[in-house]
Amino acid sequence: MMGSSSARDAAPMMQPSTEEKQTEEEGTLIQQWQWAEPLIYHDLLMLENQIPLSLLRELHGIILSHDKSPSMDELILSFFKEFSLTKHITKIPEGSCHHLLHLFHSSLIPKKQPTTRGIRAQLVAEVTSAIPCARDLIESRVKVKKKQGVACSSFLDLSFDSGRLEIPEIHVDDGTNTLLRNLIAFEQCLPRIGDYLTTYAWFMDSVIDNSADVALLRRKHVLESGLGSDEEVAKLFNSLCKEVMVDPNQCYLEETIKEVNKYHRSRRNRCYATLNHNYFSNPWASISVIAAIILFVLTFIQTLYSMCDSCYKA
């Protein structure tokens, strides 16, 4: 009897306290949060989930009113660094933004923006026509390089100069498709903010024709893939701009596209591209061309030697 009584008396002492229960529950919630965190991040940037940024600031002031709490801008900056597209952002863009997606979009805009101007009618076809894929550009002596340094303020900051096409590196993962689609949809809903993401997606759709182009861009360190295969990356970019129009009068890559097409279509580069595609596209073709050249040179030398020998005997 005394043993049973002692066991009953000891039982309540073995039960966890309220603080221990709370700690256990918080530990479980943290584990769940770590699992759901990437999904929540992308849900916060979906166009249909946006709420006014001013309301978020009001809620932040009410919920986190003590002095030690981080500011709203610090929280937003920490939020942006979770995405590969904005991980290099060090300052919240200035200006009035409607919501979080608008602010995210503003942080992607290149610092050096070209002046918008009207395009002459004869140039519209040249601008709106798709540029060649990466393989065709390489064959026509266009040097595709990774853009870096202080001149690269965003992955949208493409440039072309003297046959050198510089493209900032972009990391493509499972969330890139959803994120780019929401940014493009936002630009379609609010044309006055520009069509930077739409134009970029259209440009990459032109440069990437299939998995071979993706592999080439990866070798050039322009594209880093977190997907299963190059085919998936090509499919992603080829489907972004379906039923989406790019206005040539608002195209921030107008000059870049025009210069790339002009360089690619020059007679000298077209001849070089044809020679490269037909005779140097694979090692066996290159060996055949080199063997033919050597045979031609040897035949010419033999013929010249025979002529000289005939003249000497005469």
Rank of each mutant, 00 (worst) to 15 (best):
I30G: 04
S281R: 06
A291F: 06
S129Q: 08
K68G: 07
V142G: 01
I257T: 06
L223I: 05
S6V: 09
H221V: 07
K21P: 00
V150R: 12
F203I: 11
D213E: 09
T128M: 08
Q302G: 14
L53N: 06
K146M: 11
H264L: 01
H99I: 07
P38Q: 01
T299Y: 14
Y196H: 15
S17M: 06
F160P: 06
E26D: 04
F80K: 02
C97E: 07
G27L: 07
A285F: 02
L123M: 11
V144S: 02
H88K: 13
T199K: 04
S288F: 00
A314D: 04
T18Y: 09
P12V: 11
F186A: 01
E26I: 12
R117H: 15
K145N: 13
L77V: 07
E24C: 03
D43S: 11
T28L: 12
S106G: 00
C241H: 02
K91N: 08
A314M: 04
L123F: 12
R270E: 09
D136P: 00
T115D: 08
F186H: 03
H277A: 14
I287P: 00
R8V: 13
M245V: 11
I167Q: 05
L137F: 01
H171W: 09
R270K: 08
V142K: 00
H171N: 06
Y41G: 03
F104T: 09
R117A: 14
P70L: 14
S78H: 07
L100T: 04
R267S: 06
Y312K: 04
I51Q: 14
S65P: 05
Y272L: 11
S5E: 15
Q250R: 12
R164T: 13
S310Y: 01
Q31T: 12
H66V: 09
Y279C: 10
M245Q: 09
R218H: 04
E255W: 01
I293F: 13
N276I: 00
A185L: 03
S225D: 10
V233H: 10
S239K: 09
E139A: 12
R218C: 13
I257A: 05
R164A: 04
V150H: 11
S54N: 15
Q31G: 15
P110N: 08
S159C: 04
V214Y: 10
L77A: 10
R267W: 05
Y279H: 13
L77K: 12
V150D: 15
I293S: 12
I40Y: 13
A292C: 14
Q113S: 08
A215T: 15
D67K: 15
K81A: 09
E19R: 01
D43G: 05
L165E: 02
S162G: 00
R57L: 08
L298F: 14
A121H: 05
R267F: 07
R8N: 11
R164S: 06
C251M: 10
L240A: 02
D213Q: 07
D174F: 13
E37I: 04
L44V: 03
N261D: 02
R181E: 08
Q32E: 14
D209V: 09
I184P: 03
Q302K: 14
I294G: 03
D136C: 02
M307A: 13
V289K: 14
Y272R: 07
I167W: 04
E37Q: 13
S306E: 05
N269W: 00
L103R: 06
G163A: 05
